[in-house]
Design a protein around this nucleic acid. Structure first.
Lengths: 346, 346
DNA sequence: CTGTTAGCGCTTTCAA
DNA sequence: TTGAAAGCGCTAACAG
């Protein structure tokens, strides 16, 4: 293994100056003549020198490592591609010579166990993708108290919290706008309820108003009961709408799984997608590519979220070194329509 | 931060003995009286001591870190749940206080780039999930040459190679046996071609013979052309079989995506699954849960593969410390049928 | 502009 | 059975 000392010996200088040059602190400290610097770099390259991360970590008291705590659900074709977030995070980190240490959890108990094991000595920060965990914010302080800058991916980014969230109202606004742009005049909206559902509904209403359309209560399909998140419930919902004689030429579904089910229901009723009715889902999950008519969807841009998260965290860890957006600021990634067959053909 | 010295000072002993006790080398070196040992452990627990991984790595020249290189495909609902493998790996590693550093790649170029960056100073070994990369074995030596024990997840485990693979013949054997057990008498087989396809076919034939059935060439649907892996091709294939008047009451599909497509085709022809025809896919991918009739499938047990891979790698890294199956030996994880609606009802 | 020196926290001889 | 001391490779303070 080539060390800094090998290089210093080769040139006949001290290890200190080699260290300063090779770790890029040269400019800041106004040290090392340009000639020496280039010489050192040349020898380092020739020898194939790579710094020993452990030695550096021990000395600098920085591990150049962040820990990513990610929820793992089996069979998640209906939900956001979780690996995309991870991919975005690890891409930015490795570009900045940080390591991404992965820790999966499946149950909330495992999650709290992981949190208990987090240590300043192992890592410099934590990224959490809490997934289905209810009220994940409540865990943040216990991590931060260990001196670990922490960033959560949240569904609803609360104010003054250093996190990355989704603007639910924007999601349905862009979905509805997309349908309007595709020529839909009567757009149905599937409401999943809850705070997020309320925001989604407002986003839909905004887009309807902006398009100069009249809001029609009958176009809203409220799903309820404890199974309201299950796609099959949407199947019953649309059945009732059709029985009631309500007509529509576009549907903003609450999820991709729902869109998938609605698509099949319409097809079995002889209603053509996208010719008669256009459908758009939410999440841009793998399921969108699986049906005969591929489903358009609104993407939360998980990879981009991962990248931004990583940059923000790096900035918190070492503000002078990494530029990543002001800490304490909420970032909402704009949702983006991924158009596929279910809204494309006319 | 609590160090070994804090504990030594508290008790009034040297750091050396504390180190020996706390890192579990006590028994091996026959050192430290039982009383001292318990005392040290008690104080360590009281102080909340956790070792500094960087210091230990620097001293021991072992990083307690393995790098997992994983292919990332977007929209992979049709294929094995990649995170399951990762999950298995990271579970075993963290149980043995190893860190799993994650590195994703999307293109072969990125993959070779990652390989170039692998360093002994950062990690002790490498696990590669090459995904769709063609002939991934060719890259192994370039990693091993760096002194990094490497383990590949391969589709076909070649002999004398320290890897974990799938027995393709067993996959179709268990699939076919499952259909036989469910009462199928005429079982169609979808052949995806290639070496794996040949093995699968042999496995199917073996199960047919074992069941005392006659092998019938017409029950084999050969898919060909460059799109032969695309599920839609299976749609055409089954259409031709039905047109030709070939009757069957069970189907062993080449993949879950294929099973999914076949299921929908049969349904649209008024053929009921599983009443008239039972279908089983391969991979146990998320898509199996998405159709109205959930699809039975053969799982390659990715989580278990990950666990075994991690154990084998740990064993190669430090044989005296970790017990993980003999190196140089191929491990084929037995495929397992996950029965769902598409083969269950009678 | 460059060198010397003292650690970072832990492991590991070698003495006692 | 225990302790003293050297060293892993790098950084940072202080001298020159």
């Amino acid at each position: 293994m080539i060390t800094i000392k090998d290089i210093a010996d080769e040139i006949g200088v001290s290890t200190a100056i080699v260290s300063i040059v090779l770790s890029g602190r040269s400019a800041a400290n106004k040290r090392a003549s340009p000639e020496l610097a280039t010489k050192i770099k040349a020898v380092a390259a020739e020898f194939g020198y790579t710094p020993n991360v452990s030695a550096r970590a021990l000395s600098k008291k920085r591990q150049n490592t962040i820990c990513m705590l990610a929820s793992r659900k089996t069979g998640q074709a209906e939900s956001t591609d979780a690996s995309a977030t991870l991919f975005g995070v690890s891409k930015v980190l490795s570009a900045n010579s940080f390591r991404t240490v992965l820790q999966y959890f499946e149950t909330e108990e495992e999650f709290t166990g992981c949190i208990g094991n987090l240590r300043r000595q192992f890592m410099d920060g934590v990224v959490v993708d809490p997934g289905w965990i209810f009220n994940p914010e409540k865990y943040r302080d216990s991590i931060e108290q260990k001196g670990l800058p922490t960033l959560f991916f949240l569904q609803n980014a609360a104010e003054n919290i250093f996190d990355i969230g989704i603007n639910h109202d924007e999601v349905s606004t862009v979905a509805t706008e997309h349908l309007v742009a595709r020529g839909c005049k009567k757009i149905a909206f599937f409401d999943m309820g809850g705070a997020a559902g309320q925001l989604r509904l407002e986003g839909y209403q905004k887009a309807i108003a902006n398009a100069g359309m009249q809001f029609d209560k009958r176009m809203i399909c409220h799903l309820s009961g404890k199974d309201k998140y299950k796609p099959a419930i949407a199947d019953r919902g649309i059945g009732k709408m059709i029985e009631a004689g309500i007509r529509f030429d576009g549907i903003v579904a609450a999820s991709d799984g729902q869109a998938f089910v609605l698509l099949h229901r319409l097809q079995s009723l002889g209603i053509k997608v996208p010719e008669d009715v256009k459908i758009i889902g939410v999440d841009n999950s793998p399921i969108c590519e699986l049906s005969f008519v591929k489903i358009s969807s609104v993407s939360g841009q998980p990879e981009l979220r991962g990248e931004i998260a990583a940059r923000k965290l790096l900035h918190r860890i070492a503000p002078e070194e990494f530029d990543g957006g002001a800490a304490g600021e909420i970032t909402n990634i704009p949702p983006k329509v991924v158009a596929r067959e279910s809204t494309l053909k006319n």
